[in-house]
Design a protein around this nucleic acid. Structure first.
Lengths: 209, 209
DNA sequence: TTAGAAATTGAATATATATTCAGAATACCA
DNA sequence: TGGTATTCTGAATATATATTCAATTTCTAA
């Protein structure tokens, strides 16, 4: 009985090790150029062993995306839950997002190709499950905007569009940071993004005629 | 002589036909799931013929990306050149971008996976040439921001970050529009994006205490 | 200590598809 | 019209890699 459980724990641990190896390989090469061989080597298992843990290469990819998407969504949900002011909630979401992807740079690459537009990179469509998690996330953030609009804190505009703007700004910033050698994102950047997002790019009308 | 030229024109036309077929297939399936077979069928040539026009599948992809990237960059360059006020230039760039990608939705999908972050989807790196074109484009837009900042029209902030914000907002908006069945992007959207980008998401401080 | 169960292995298999190339079709010119 | 150059063709080849599975190793419990 205790035995049963130890084996199971081992098995779980091994699966997680494979998923982490896979994350590194997928992030670096994308789904198609990544080989099961390489994932196996990185996880220090033989190819055959991988196939006793996962149905297929696709299954690994799916499970990985789903796992991280869930972690991310949960972290944002928690962030929102702890605050009530919409403005502060958005602030916190930006910070949480930067933090999460700073800690999960590899996943960011997978994340963007998996969510941006459609999913040509993915084997075919994302799993229904992952799709739901993502939709959930978008709805969550949109709801904050909706409430903020109701309170007249945010501009009167389709909350989805505001969410898209938020996503767009943060994504391009994260991408750039990672691209140019991952700077300290979580530090100065949240303020800059907030400044832009909240105030826009126009200079305050002090100096202009 | 005139003969030589006719053959050459034919050849050019055929190449373009193949590139267009390839664009559709790559956009739909991404580089790896696209097959040369399918591109050939779509262009109404035999596989072998494709290989008399292009070195390889990769070469087709590269040439395609390069061609469109150049078109796009040129259209933006022209847009900027025709105006002098930075604020109007940015406005026009947004409009031009939306218009271009509304007319080239297929390419948008290729474009984002080719530029976002790195290029895991692409065979390996984008061609040096395409990379240059893209860097050029970013510099062009950054320069507008720089000038606007100098004129105190835009907020004092790293022009590159402003460009990233612009790119982020427009990309996520375009992606969403395409995703949800390509609405009339070029119409109402530029104004909304400008409103957001220029003014930010905070409501003007009229009603709030 | 050992029989059996479970986990691991990696060489062999299956499959998919990029690329080649010998020959067929076509265009051109004398 | 016939001969040559050019273009086109698609079956055959080459290659890469996902997946399988018989054999081996490791673990467990009596």
């Amino acid at each position: 009985m205790a035995e049963r459980s130890r084996r199971e724990r081992e098995r779980e641990r091994h699966r997680r090790e494979v998923l982490e190896a896979a994350e590194a390989v997928f992030a670096q090469k994308g789904f198609y150029r990544a080989t099961v061989q390489e994932i196996a080597e990185r996880a220090e298992f033989a190819v055959g062993t991988i196939y006793t843990m996962f149905e297929s290469k696709k299954a690994i990819y799916y499970e990985l995306v789903q796992m991280r998407a869930r972690e991310y969504t949960e972290s944002v949900r928690e962030t929102i839950r702890q605050l009530t002011d919409p403005r502060e909630q958005i602030r916190a979401v930006v910070a949480a997002k930067l933090k999460f992807f700073e800690e999960n740079q590899q996943f960011f690459r997978i994340f963007t190709s998996a969510t941006s537009g459609e999913d040509r990179e993915a084997p075919f469509a994302l799993s229904e499950e992952a799709r739901k998690v993502y939709a959930d996330y978008m709805r969550m953030v949109s709801d904050v905007f909706r409430e903020g609009i109701r309170q007249k804190v945010f501009v009167q505009m389709n909350p989805l569009l505001l969410t898209l703007a938020l996503e767009g700004i943060t994504n391009s910033t994260i991408a750039h940071s990672i691209h140019t050698g991952g700077e300290k994102l979580a530090e100065a950047t949240p303020e800059r993004i907030e400044r832009l997002l909240f105030g826009g790019i126009l200079a305050r009308q002090d100096p202009q005629s």
